[in-house]
Amino acid sequence: MEDILHFFDVFISSYHVFLDGLWITLKLSVVSLLIAIVIGLFVALLKISNIKILEWIADAYIWIVRGTPLIVQIFILYYGLTDILLIPMFWAGAAGLAFHSGAYIAEIIRGAIQSIDKGQREAGLSLGMNKGLTMKRIILPQAFRRAVPSLGNQFIIGIKDSSLVSFIGMQDLFGVASTMGSNSFDYLPYYVTVAVYYLLIVLLLTFIVNKIEKRLAVSD
């Protein structure tokens, strides 16, 4: 009982620090998701390009991302990149997360593109639209709609994965929890607190994705 009261005490009294962390986590997650979608779209198009060398490049990228731990990728990007050019920690973290999610999003988008009935492409071509225009105007809009649930899921994974940036020193949600915990030698309540924050974000996000899904279903 006392423990529970203590947790609430910590939860409430620490909110302003956690809000700073929350802001960083959200900014990081959204920025890295947007970059990851661009990477993912690009890599997906490479994979379906029917040009061997481009397919290999895409495969190699996906292989590297899948075959190595995210924390290793972040460390290499952060320490590797800062050696070459000085990038702010935020962008190193965002780049690391985007590099990682990009591979998974590429597979999501490729799957979605290939799930669109081939009659759609043929209809576009038969109207005189070239391949690029058909992809942009006919296939991709449908593919993205179809990919919304999976993209939402990947975003949720991305938010949780973003906690790893605390290991390069960022004060995101998890970074804040770690710092507060070690400063007070009172770890558990802070880790439970941060868990609650993540749970709430994921809950909210699940709700939003479901809403978008419903909205998009109207035209189907």
Binding site: G119, Q120, E122, A123, L125, S126, N130, Q142
Partner: peptide, 20 residues
């Protein structure tokens, strides 16, 4: 061929309308 196809319309068995 895109130019040629502008002049040759096609109607498919399964319509292939753009659902979006």
């Amino acid at each position: 061929l895109n130019k040629i196809r502008q002049k040759v319309g096609m109607v498919f068995q399964h319509f292939n309308l753009f659902p979006h």
